[in-house]
Nucleic acid binder design. Structure first.
Lengths: 334, 334
DNA sequence: CGATATGCTGCTCATATGAGCACCAAGTCG
DNA sequence: CGACTTGGTGCTCATATGAGCAGCATATCG
C-alpha cells in the first residue's frame, strides 16, 4: 500500500492528465499549458517527472510472431522438416529470449507423451525451458556434460527444470563436458550412472540443441565459455582445424565434417555425432546472424532436422548457398 | 503468423533502433540522424510510423494501489468498520474499473464459505464480479429488480456471473426494479419465486451495493438510468423530495432518512431499508467525487459498514462533515 | 515508348522545446 | 530577527522539431 499526501495525489493526477494529452492525444506542451493555465515549463517538468516516476511507461514491441513466408523459405533452403523464423527486435539478449520462448511453444505443442527428449545446453535453451509451463510426460536426457562449476547455469539445472514440468523423469550427466585426460574420459564414460545416460541416447526421439559458432565475438555464449576451458594448445588446434560450428560440445567444419575429431572423441563427454544423427528429430535453436554458417555446417553434418531462429538469422542463412540433400541422389536435370 | 518482406523487416528493425534511442535513451532526433547517417526527417517519420504501427507502446499507470493513510482517515471520518481508498487516475470509466477490481479483491479475500452474499447492481459491481476468478462457496442473492430490458447489463447477469465463480448458487429477482402499479408490486412480492428471495434477505451476512447520487450528470450510471423509467410526476416528486443518494433502488435524503418513502414502499422491488440495515456487513463501492454526499447520507441512514472508493472520492468525503455515531450516546465532553 | 501517378526524400521557415539562469516564497538555524 | 538553504517558478536564447512543399525516383497505364 502506498501512502501519499493529498498534494502528492493531486500532483500525480495532474501529471497523468498532462501525459494523456501529450503522449496519447498528441497535444503540444504549449497547447496543454494554455488549456490548463500553467506555464509550458511546468508542463515540461511534470511530464519529465511522470516518466521518471514510472507513471508513463514506454515499451517497445520486440516481436515474437513467427513469419510464415520466411519460415517456409528457410525450411526449403535447408531442406528441413520444419523451420520457424520468429520476428524479434532488440538487444541480443531480448532476441535470445524471444526465440527461446518460441522454441518452447514449438516443443510443448509437438512433443508427445512417452517420448525421450534430449536437451543440450545454452542460454537460449534456458529461456526455452523457463517459458514452458507444461510438457507431456517424457523421459528427459541431458545430452552433454557441464561447462564451468556454476550449478544454476549448467545443463544439470536445465534438465532439472525440464524435469519439473515434464514427468519428473530426467537423467543428468554429472560430469564436465571437457576432460583433459583421454583415459579419464573412458573411465567416466564407463561409470554406471554416466554410462546409463550415454546408452539411453539411442532411444532419443527428439533432441533440442543450441548452436554455437566459433567465429563469434566472445559474447558469453556457451561456445565462448567452452573455449577458455581448453588448454591453449587444444584451443589453437581447434581454431585452426576449420571448425565453424558447435553443438552438444561437438565441433564441425563448414563442410559438415567433424572438426578436430580427436577432441570430440577423446575429451568431450557428450552424445556422439553418430547417435545425434540417428535421432529422428533434432531441433536446433539459435539467434543472431553470426550463427548462419554454423547452422549450414550442422545441416551438412546431418545433425539437425528442424530450426527455430530469429528473422535476422533466417535472412542470413538464406544469403548462404542452399543445402542440397545428398548430391549423389539428386535428380539429374534433363 | 505475420508475413513481411525482408525490406519491411529491415524497416521495422530500424524503427525499433530509432525508437529505443529516442524514447528510452533520450537521444534527440538530430543526434540519431547524425549517428545513423539518415536525415532527421526520416528519423521523425520512422518514429511516427513506429507509434502508429504499435511498435512503440505508451501506457499510463492508472493506479490501483490502496492508499493506507487515506483509507484509515476515511474509516475514522465515517466511523466505518473498514474502508479502502484506491489510487486511480484516468477517465471515469477507468477509475470505475480500478475501484471495481479492488472491491473484487476485498470481497474474494474476506467472504467465507457458507455466507449469504447480496449483490446490488451497478457498473462498478459488474467490474468487480468480472475481476474475481474465485469465490468461496456462498449463497448469492440479488438485492433488487432489473432496470431496463437488457439482460447483459442487468443485475440478473451480475448474479449469474457471481454464481459461476462462487458455488453455483444464486437466486435472481426476475422482475423490474420499478413497478408503477402499487397493487402490482404486492402481487409480484407474493409470487413464490420472488418471495423466496425477499424472505432470504434476512439471512444475508454480507451485501455489496453500488452508490448512486441524484445530483449526477446523467453519465449513464444506474441511478440515471433508473430516473427515465419513472413517470414524470414521480420523477419530479423524487427530485424535489430532497433525495441525494440511491442504493438498491432505495432513495435517501441527506440526513439519512428515506426520501419519498412511498416510492420505495409501493413501487420498488428491492431489499427493504430495514432488512439492509440488519445485514452485518454492507460494502458500498463507488467512484467519482460526485458521490461524496450520497455516501454520507447512506452512512447516516446506517446502511453501510464498509467502503471501497477511489482516492479522489475519499478526499471529497473527508471534506464533508465527519459522521458521528449516534449523537445521543456520544460521551459528553468534560 | 512517353505520360501520369505515387511514394519517398530532403529542403525552408515558423514554431516548439530544452538548458541554464534569476527570482521568489517558505522554512531553518545562529 | 536576519542570513541561509531549499524547492519551485518563469524567463531568455539557442536548438530541436513539425508542416508543408518541391524534387526525384519508381510504378502504372495507354
Amino acid at each position: 500500500m502506498s501512502t501519499k499526501s493529498a498534494a502528492q495525489r493531486a500532483r500525480a493526477r495532474q501529471m497523468l492528465e498532462i501525459a494523456r494529452r501529450y503522449d496519447l492525444a498528441d497535444e503540444s506542451k504549449v497547447e496543454i499549458s494554455d488549456r490548463l493555465g500553467i506555464s509550458r515549463f511546468k508542463v515540461a517538468r511534470l511530464l519529465q517527472e511522470a516518466r521518471e516516476s514510472g507513471l508513463v511507461r514506454i515499451t517497445l514491441e520486440h516481436g515474437g510472431e513467427p513469419d510464415e513466408a520466411l519460415s517456409r523459405q528457410l525450411a526449403r533452403h535447408l531442406a528441413l522438416d520444419a523451420a520457424v523464423a520468429v520476428e524479434a527486435y532488440g538487444t541480443v539478449e531480448e532476441i535470445r529470449r524471444i526465440v527461446g520462448t518460441h522454441a518452447g511453444k514449438v516443443l510443448a505443442n509437438t512433443v508427445t507423451r512417452g517420448e525421450t527428449l534430449g536437451l543440450a545446453w545454452g542460454r537460449t535453451l534456458t529461456h526455452m525451458i523457463e517459458s514452458i509451463d507444461h510438457l507431456p510426460s517424457v523421459q528427459i536426457l541431458q545430452l552433454n556434460g557441464a561447462v564451468g562449476p556454476s550449478l544454476s547455469q549448467s545443463p544439470v539445472e536445465l534438465a532439472l527444470k525440464a524435469s519439473l514440468i515434464g514427468g519428473n523423469n530426467a537423467k543428468a550427466i554429472m560430469a564436465p563436458l571437457y576432460i583433459s585426460d583421454a583415459d579419464g574420459v573412458q573411465a567416466i564414460r564407463s561409470q554406471p550412472d554416466i554410462k546409463d545416460v550415454l546408452d539411453s541416447f539411442d532411444t532419443l526421439t527428439t533432441a533440442v540443441v543450441a548452436v554455437g559458432s566459433l567465429n563469434d565475438t566472445g559474447d558469453g555464449s556457451t561456445t565462448s565459455r567452452l573455449l577458455p576451458m581448453l588448454p591453449p594448445a587444444v584451443r589453437e588446434e581447434l581454431l585452426s582445424s576449420g571448425a565453424v560450428a558447435e553443438a552438444c560440445g561437438l565441433t564441425y567444419a563448414a563442410d559438415g565434417g567433424l572438426a578436430y575429431r580427436q577432441l570430440s572423441r577423446d575429451h568431450i563427454l557428450s552424445i556422439s555425432p553418430q547417435q545425434l544423427r540417428r535421432v529422428p528429430r533434432v531441433i536446433a535453436v539459435a539467434s543472431d546472424p553470426s550463427k548462419a554458417e554454423a547452422i549450414l555446417a550442422l545441416r551438412r553434418a546431418d545433425v539437425l532436422s528442424e530450426l527455430v531462429v530469429d528473422a535476422e538469422l533466417a535472412e542470413a542463412i538464406l544469403a548462404l548457398p542452399a543445402f542440397v540433400r545428398d548430391r549423389d541422389e539428386a535428380p539429374w536435370p534433363a
